[in-house]
């Protein structure tokens, strides 16, 4: 009997998960439909680009600089065990553009943006603002959801690109100030081994992460249950699920992009 009860519990959890997955897929398809049926609120999109993209620059920039600097120190320390200190510039550049840039940017944005989207839309839901939008002949999907998702998809690659540059610059600063690298040699080594593929693959990852952040933020916001506790839960869920999906999809994308 105990085994049956455990199996029932597992089955029920699995059923909840499948139902959630189904609703998420329907949500994505519905947004696509609304995107093509219009209208597209361009002003809202621009405002979201500013709010999601531009206002995230300081946190992304600082994270990238410190990560690049720490990475340079770690690679130097590890490389010195087999006299490979000279690889520091190229490994910092490749590591940041391929992996750390998009993933860190994605995770930071999951914390900063996905949560704020979920909280904002969740609060609008519990205070009947979504209902008010609807009665004012304004579809909440077109007005609120699509501009946010688009802004996330567009912002993330740009933020990642800026993060890549600042991360490499962080490594460069430590390289020439602490690790006794020659400035010119460091830059030559960085550019010599860095390929275009390293950069664009990171940007593709970032766009996918942006989509995940936008979708999960808005989905959790719209599915907020009533009350402050509901908004809190939606915020937490959006951050947790965005982060998990970013890390999982990062692995799958790495497999797809590099394991040819």
């Amino acid at each position: 009997m105990i085994i049956v009860s455990y199996i029932q519990k597992i089955g029920s959890i699995f059923r909840v998960f499948l139902s959630l997955l189904g609703r998420l897929v329907l949500f994505i398809l519905f947004n696509l439909k609304r995107l093509f049926s219009g209208p597209f609120y361009f002003k809202n999109f621009i405002y979201q680009l500013f709010s999601i993209g531009f206002l995230s620059l300081p946190v992304i920039g600082l994270t990238a600089i410190f990560t690049g600097a720490a990475l340079a120190l770690q690679i130097f320390s590890g490389g010195s065990r087999f006299n490979a200190e000279s690889v520091v510039p190229s490994i910092v550049a490749i590591g940041i553009t391929r992996e750390l840039g998009p993933v860190l940017c994605g995770l930071i944005m999951a914390g900063r943006v996905s949560s704020s989207i979920a909280a904002e839309i969740g609060t609008m839901k519990v205070t009947e603002q979504l209902d008010a939008l609807y009665t004012l002949n304004t579809n909440p999907y077109n007005f609120l959801i699509i501009p946010r998702i688009f802004a996330c998809v567009i912002s993330l690659p740009f933020l990642t690109l800026i993060g890549d540059l600042l991360g490499i610059w962080g490594g460069y600063l430590i390289g020439i100030s602490t690790l006794d690298f020659n400035s010119t040699n460091y830059l030559v080594n960085t550019l010599q081994y860095l390929q275009f593929e390293d950069i664009y693959s990171g940007l593709i990852k970032a766009a996918v992460f942006g989509f995940i952040i936008g979708i999960l933020g808005t989905f959790n916001g719209l599915n907020t249950s009533i009350g402050a506790k509901g908004v809190g839960r939606a915020t937490t869920n959006s951050v947790v699920w965005s982060s998990i999906l970013i890390l999982a999809s990062n692995y799958l994308l790495t497999e797809a992009l590099f394991n040819k």
């Binding site: 205070t127 009947e128 209902d131 609807y134 009665t135 004012l136 002949n137």
Partner: peptide, 12 residues
């Protein structure tokens, strides 16, 4: 919807 006006409980 164009021909109605709604005043919500919490104002919204």
């Amino acid at each position: 919807l164009k021909q109605i006006g709604v005043c919500f409980q919490g104002n919204a």
